[in-house]
Every structure is written in C-alpha cells, then in structure tokens.
C-alpha cells in the first residue's frame, strides 16, 4: 500500500474515530472536566492559604508554605501523581474504598496549589500598600482588609495566570491514567489510548488530542480577552444599575462643581 496513505489512515481513520467518539463524549470529556475543574477549585482554595501564609509576618507560616511550594513545583507531575495515588491508596481504601479517582484529584490539586499559591502571592503583593493603609485607616482589621480590599484586587490581576493554570490542569489530568481507573472513570487520553492499543491505529488518540485542543485553545483566547479587558478597563456602560439616582444628583450639590 501507498506509504502516505498508510500514514494518513494511522492518524485520520474516520472509522476508528467514529468508534471512539461516543465514549469520549459521554465518559472521557466529563471525567477530564471533573478532574481539571475540581482540582482547580481545591487547588485555588489551598493556593490562597499558601499565598497568605507566604506573605505572613510569622516565620512559622511563611517557611512551611515556602517548602511546600518548592516541593510540589519541583517534582514532575507524574511522580507526584504516582506518589500520592499509590502511596496514599491504603489510606484511601479505608476512607472511600478501592477508588483511585479521589487521590488523582488530590494529587492534581496539590500540584496546582503550589503554582496557584505563587500566582496569588504575586497578585496580592502587586496591590499598592496604600490600599491596605486606606482600609486600615477606615477601621478594617488586617484580616478584613485583606479579604475585602486586597485579595479581590490581587485576584483580578492574576485571572489570566489562573486560566493558564486551568489549561495546564486539563493537560495534566491525563496523567491520572497511571492510577488504574475504572472503565467509567477514564478520561479523554486514557480512552484514546485504549482504542489505539486495541486497534493499533492512532486515530482515536488523535481524536483525544483534538478534544484537548477544543478545550485549551478557546481558554487561551479567554486569557487574552481577560487580559485586554483588565488593561483597558470595562466599558463605562452597564455600571449604572439604578437610573433613578441621576435625579438625586445635581440639586443641593455642596462644594465646587467640577466638569
């Protein structure tokens, strides 16, 4: 057979793709999304804690946060997933039975939290110190000032980096296949790989790749869009939710009128 044609059929065999498609849609895609989104949420919650500990004045908070971050950023994701997924399996067995799925989510979350902690910390530290001073001068406690004034501003600035981390998580979620998932727990990569292994044809794996791209490429554009919006600010329209107050405005204005 024509070698080019062979090559084409190895990757773009429509029959193999059609065969894998239903399972990708109903099993693989939901599982990939569950793994990535749950890990993003857990990782963010833990990341905030790490960020606040990382800028704490107390050495006993700062130091563990530093070590944690170094370890989980420094290890290969595959090693962490195996260490957590296999190492904690006996413990998981007692809590929820022989199910590697929660440990996969845990490992992904721990990895993500190390990166997200650094991202949040840089965001928080990018907020001008005068904002904290102003909040404290009004009577906010340090904790309330962080929560209401500093962190919300910091988070906004790192939204693009956060979405980037979500993209990384979508890709890294493929690594939980190490842990030996049940058929119903398989994510996109594993399903593609299983079909490819059974048929010797790579088209199902390529289809899985297309699914990943369909998730990640739009997200990169979301990042760019957020970035642009943060840079230029949102349009002034839409900020007014109460048109009535225009009536209250002008009469009785004290002080010099500007503009």
């Amino acid at each position: 057979m024509d070698p080019l044609r062979t090559l084409w059929e190895t990757f773009f065999d429509g029959e193999s793709m059609r065969e894998a498609l239903p399972e990708m849609l109903t099993v693989g895609l939901p599982n990939t999304l569950i793994l990535a989104v749950t890990a993003a949420l857990l990782g963010s919650a833990l990341g905030i804690v790490l960020a606040v500990a990382g800028i704490s004045r107390t050495r006993w908070l700062r130091w563990p946060a530093r070590v944690y971050t170094d370890i989980f950023r420094g290890l290969p994701a595959a090693a962490t997933i195996l260490l957590i997924g296999v190492g904690l399996a006996p413990l998981g067995m007692q809590v929820w039975g022989p199910n590697p799925y929660p440990l996969g989510i845990l490992a992904l979350s721990l990895i993500a939290s190390a990166y997200l902690g650094e991202i949040f910390r840089s965001g928080i530290q990018s907020v001008e110190a005068t904002q904290l001073e102003a909040a404290r001068a009004l009577g906010f406690s340090w904790r309330e000032a962080m929560r209401r004034v500093i962190i919300p501003q910091g988070i906004r600035r790192i939204l693009p980096a956060w979405v980037n981390q979500l993209i990384a998580l979508i890709k890294d979620s493929s690594l939980v296949y190490f842990l030996g998932l049940l058929a119903s727990q398989r994510e996109l990569f594993r399903i593609g790989q299983d079909y490819a292994a059974n048929t010797g044809n790579q088209s199902a794996l390529l289809l899985a790749g297309l699914f990943y791209l369909a998730l990640t490429v739009p997200l990169t554009h979301v990042v760019n869009w957020i970035d642009r919006r943060l840079r230029h600010g949102r349009p002034a329209a839409g900020l007014t939710d109460d048109p009535d107050d225009l009536d209250l405005a002008l009469p009785g204005a004290a002080g010099g009128n500007q503009r």
């Binding site: 225009l246 009785g252 004290a254 500007q258």
Partner: peptide, 21 residues
C-alpha cells in the same frame, strides 16, 4: 455623596472620576 456634590457618580468606578472628584 450628595454633600460633596457627587451623588451622580455613585455607580461609577473611581477610575472614571477626575482626581478632584
């Protein structure tokens, strides 16, 4: 806000105001 003459700006973001405002 009325007292400082800026009741009309209640729903604006600070960045959309002049420095004096």
């Amino acid at each position: 806000l009325d007292r400082v003459g800026l009741a009309a700006k209640a729903d604006a973001r600070p960045a959309h105001l002049s420095g004096g405002q």
